[in-house]
C-alpha cells in the first residue's frame, strides 16, 4: 500500500495528473475541436501505440546520437577553453556570437551541406546542444578552486590524474544540468527538423496530424513527445544520481 502511495505521490505522476486536469478544464471551457478530450486522445494514443513507438524511436535515435556527439566534442573543447586563458580569449567570443543564434535557422544550410536525411537533423540538434555544453563545461572548469590543482600536484600526479580526480568530477553536475536544458530545447526543435524529408519521427507525426487537422492525433503525438522527454530526463536524473553521489 505504501509503495503504491509513494508511486502516486511521486512528482512525475502528480505533474502528469495536474496537466490532464488543466487540459480537461480547457477542453470544457473553450469547447473547440482544436482541444480534444483527454480521454479520447489517450484512447487514440493506446490504439496507435505501435506507429507512435516507431516515430518515438526515430526521434530518440536522433537525439541520442546528437547528445553523444555533443559530449564527445563539447567536453574536451569546454575543458580546453576552461584551462587555457589563450584559448578562452580566442574561442569564447566565438561561442558568445554563435550561442544566442536560433540554430533552427541553419536547418536549410545543414540540409544543403549534409543532405535531407538523418545527418542534417542530427547536426542541427548537435549544434543546439554542443555550445550550451561547451559554455557550461568551460565555466565549471573555471570554477574549480585553484588549490585543488595544487593538491593533486602535491601527489606528483600526471595530467591524466588531474582530469580523473579533479576536473571531471568537478564539472559532472554542470554537464548534467546543461544536458537537461539542451535536450529540452532539441526535443522542441524536432518539431521543425523532422518536418522535412522524413516520414519518421515524432515531430513529423505531430506536424502531419496538424496539417490533416486531426487534433486527436496531434495531441497523441504531443503526449508521445512528452513521454520521450520524460524518459530522457529520467535517464539523466538516474545517471546524475549514480555518478554524483556526493551531491
Amino acid at each position: 500500500m505504501s509503495k503504491l502511495k509513494r508511486s502516486l505521490f511521486h512528482p512525475l505522476p502528480m505533474g502528469f495528473m495536474m496537466i490532464i486536469m488543466i487540459w480537461y478544464v480547457l477542453y470544457l471551457v473553450i469547447a473547440t475541436r482544436t482541444i480534444p478530450a483527454p480521454l479520447e486522445t489517450f484512447n487514440y494514443f493506446f490504439r496507435h501505440l505501435h506507429p507512435l513507438v516507431i516515430h518515438m524511436g526515430a526521434s530518440l535515435m536522433r537525439v541520442v546520437v546528437a547528445v553523444v556527439l555533443a559530449i564527445l566534442i563539447g567536453l574536451p573543447v569546454g575543458i580546453a577553453i576552461g584551462r587555457s586563458k589563450r584559448l578562452d580569449k580566442v574561442l569564447s567570443p566565438l561561442l558568445y556570437i554563435i550561442y544566442p543564434i536560433p540554430k533552427v535557422a541553419f536547418l536549410p544550410v545543414f540540409m544543403l551541406l549534409f543532405g535531407l536525411g538523418n545527418v542534417s537533423k542530427v547536426i542541427l540538434m548537435l549544434f543546439i546542444i554542443v555550445f550550451q555544453l561547451m559554455l557550461s563545461v568551460r565555466d565549471g572548469v573555471k570554477d574549480i578552486p585553484p588549490h585543488y590543482f595544487t593538491v593533486i600536484r602535491s601527489f606528483s600526479a600526471r595530467r591524466k590524474y588531474l582530469y580523473r580526480y579533479v576536473v571531471l568530477p568537478a564539472i559532472l553536475p554542470r554537464i548534467f544540468s546543461s544536458l537537461r536544458i539542451s535536450i529540452g530545447i532539441s526535443l522542441a526543435t524536432l518539431f521543425f527538423a523532422e518536418n522535412y524529408a522524413t516520414t519518421y519521427g515524432i515531430g513529423y507525426f505531430i506536424l502531419s496530424a496538424w496539417m490533416k487537422m486531426n487534433y486527436v492525433e496531434m495531441f497523441s503525438g504531443i503526449i508521445a513527445l512528452s513521454l520521450l522527454g520524460s524518459v530522457l530526463f529520467g535517464v539523466i536524473d538516474m545517471l546524475e544520481k549514480r555518478l554524483t553521489p556526493w551531491l
Binding site: 588549490h147 585543488y148 595544487t150 593538491v151 602535491s154 601527489f155 606528483s156 600526479a157 600526471r158 590524474y161 580526480y165 579533479v166 568530477p169 568537478a170 559532472l172 554524483t244 556526493w246
Partner: peptide, 25 residues
Amino acid sequence: FLFQDLGLFPWQTATEAVKMPLEIS
C-alpha cells in the same frame, strides 16, 4: 603536503581520498 584547508575533494569518500595517492603512485 597537508594543506591548511585540508584540500579534501567534495566528491571523494574517505576511502577514495586515501586511496587516490596510491593509485597515482
